[in-house]
């Protein structure tokens, strides 16, 4: 079963929790990252403020396959303060994206 990482980035607040969770879980060096938060904005777009954060998993992200195989949740998903990260089977992702409102939701297969 292939898995992907769904991100409800419309509500990501850029808290850096996923980055630090991953560093600690994987024992990465300080200049490495398994996931990194990108910031876009704030900038006025069509008269309203646009300000998004999008966490982007790197090639070092294996969606914590081993950990999940033990029935545990990936640390980025568990610790995420806004609860916007979900690791799901790919065939469930489209349905979940619509369920979340179908706006500012994305997914990654790192």
């Amino acid at each position: 079963m292939e898995y992907g990482m769904l991100i409800n980035y419309g509500l990501c607040t850029g808290c850096d929790t996923c980055e630090v969770s991953c560093l600690k879980e994987k024992g990465l060096n300080a200049d490495e990252w398994g996931i990194k938060v990108q910031q876009i904005g704030p900038k006025k777009l069509g008269g309203a403020w646009e300000w998004d954060y999008v966490p982007v998993p790197s090639r070092l992200c294996d969606l914590c396959a081993e950990r999940r195989a033990q029935g545990k949740v990936a640390p980025c998903e568990m610790h995420c303060l806004a609860k916007v990260i979900e690791i799901l089977p790919v065939d469930k992702i489209a349905e979940r994206m619509v369920e979340l409102g179908g706006k500012k939701v994305t997914c990654f297969m790192p």
């Binding site: 929790t17 980055e19 630090v20 969770s21 600690k24 949740v73 568990m78 610790h79 303060l81 609860k83």
Partner: peptide
Amino acid sequence: VEGDPENPVTNGRVCPRCLA
């Protein structure tokens, strides 16, 4: 350090400060 998913208030969520 991990979050406690059974905590009714924070539900396993932890900010970077306690993770480090």
